[in-house]
C-alpha cells in the first residue's frame, strides 16, 4: 500500500529535527547507568516499539526537560495523569507497519499523538489531565473521552 503524504507534511529537510544536545553527547559514564523502577523498562520498551527511537527520545525530553513555565512562561509540565493514559493507550494500540506516529507536547502539559489512516486522513489524540481529545477526519469524529477510556480508544483505532 502506498501511503500518500498528508497535505501539511513538509518536504524532508537534510537537518534532523531531533538532536541530542551537546550536554548529552558524551560517552556513557558508570554514573549514568541506573536501576530502573518496577515497570519502567517495560514502558521504555513500549515507547521504542510503538513510536521508534525518535518518539522515545521526544517523550524522554518532554518528561525531563520541559519544566513548569516552559516556552514563553505559560507552558505546563507534562501531566503525570496524561502520561499514564498515554501509556495505557500505547499498550493496546497496534499501528500498521508503515505508520510511525508523531508525538508532541501541548502547552497545557498534554501529549499529542498524530498519524494518518487510509493514506492521508489524520488521526490525532491529545492526552491531557482532563481527558483524551479525539480527532479522526475519516469518521468526522471530534470528541473528548475520559482518561479511563484509553483502552477502548485503542481498540477503536486498531
Amino acid at each position: 500500500m502506498t501511503t500518500a503524504q498528508p497535505s501539511f507534511l513538509l518536504p524532508s529537510f537534510s537537518r534532523h529535527s531531533y538532536e541530542v544536545s551537546d550536554a548529552l553527547q558524551f560517552e556513557p559514564l558508570p554514573s549514568s547507568v541506573r536501576a530502573s523502577e518496577p515497570g519502567e523498562t517495560a514502558r521504555e520498551e513500549l515507547l521504542l516499539k510503538k513510536l521508534g527511537a525518535k518518539g522515545w527520545g521526544r517523550v524522554h525530553h518532554f518528561r525531563n526537560f520541559y519544566q513548569q513555565g516552559w516556552g514563553d512562561g505559560s507552558g505546563k509540565a507534562l501531566s503525570p495523569r496524561a502520561l499514564e493514559a498515554f501509556f495505557e493507550f500505547l499498550k493496546s494500540v497496534n499501528f500498521s507497519e508503515e505508520v510511525l506516529p508523531s508525538v508532541f507536547l501541548t502547552d497545557s502539559g498534554g501529549l499529542e499523538l498524530c498519524w494518518e489512516e487510509d493514506g492521508n486522513r489524520p488521526i490525532q489524540l491529545e492526552f491531557s489531565p482532563s481527558g483524551i481529545e479525539v480527532y479522526r477526519e475519516k469518521t468526522g469524529t471530534e470528541k473528548i473521552l475520559a482518561l479511563t477510556e484509553s483502552l477502548e480508544l485503542a481498540r477503536s483505532v486498531n
Binding site: 507534511l9 529535527s17 531531533y18 510511525l100 508532541f104 501541548t106 497545557s108 498524530c114
Partner: peptide, 18 residues
C-alpha cells in the same frame, strides 16, 4: 514552530488550537 510542535515529519495542530 519549535521542537515540541514539530518532529521533522509532522506539525502539531496544537500550534493553533485553544
Amino acid at each position: 514552530i519549535c521542537s515540541d510542535k514539530y518532529d521533522g515529519v509532522r506539525m502539531s495542530p496544537s500550534l493553533f488550537t485553544g
